[in-house]
Design a protein around this nucleic acid. Sequence first.
RNA 1: ACUCCACAACGGUAA
Length: 237
Amino acid sequence: VVSWNAMIAGFTQNGEGILAFEYFEDMEDFEIKPTVVTFSSTLKACSIIGRLEVGRCIHEKAIVNNFQFKCFIGSALVDMYCKCKSLDEACKVFDRLFDRNVVVWNAMIVGYVQHGEGVLAIQCFSMMKEWHVNPNKTTFSSISKACGIVGAIEQGRHIHEQIIKRGLELQTFIGGALVDMYAKCGTLEEAGKVFRKLPNRDVVSWNSMIAGYSQHGDPLQTVQIFENMRCSGVEPD
RNA sequence: ACUCCACAACGGUAA
């Protein structure tokens, strides 16, 4: 069963949801008893495929095996329902989980963000703190994004402080998310301040700066940033 | 039986 799991995981990690799913089906045909690991990978395959009926079907099979309350399964289920555009079902699963680790919370927060529900994402983040679950890098990058989409600049600055306290500000994903958050809020000075501190300015953070200046700033400055980007050797996409 | 090990879930840009 470990080698079957490894095959399924290998495909999902490479974005090959359908192939992964086919291995799961073959496994059933050979009557090999799936484990928790099988289901977490297969649910991820469903997230990639994005087909709700398939995801529900795997959910039911996980229940038959009594795996539905395990953390790895819970987070995979929440993520699967979010990616299959059923925020409702994701919430249902989330509410029923009594064991909610940071990944489960993150999956829910990301789900809200992906559905444009920034306010709900921020509320979820507050609840997470009440439950004394420690946020991690994923939490911070997605909650920064939530602040950006709703223009919650004060809340965003507060998150930024927490990020600094943990020494995570200069991580590519976190710093990039902060740059984008400030850029979306139109506070370009703050965006630039974080941006200039970043040790790795990748194409994403450059793009956020360009998008921010083109929406809230001067067109000439926008072009200037683009030039700077080219000079720095980062390829525009 | 129990414990441990091998395979597993979430994140930033125009969209």
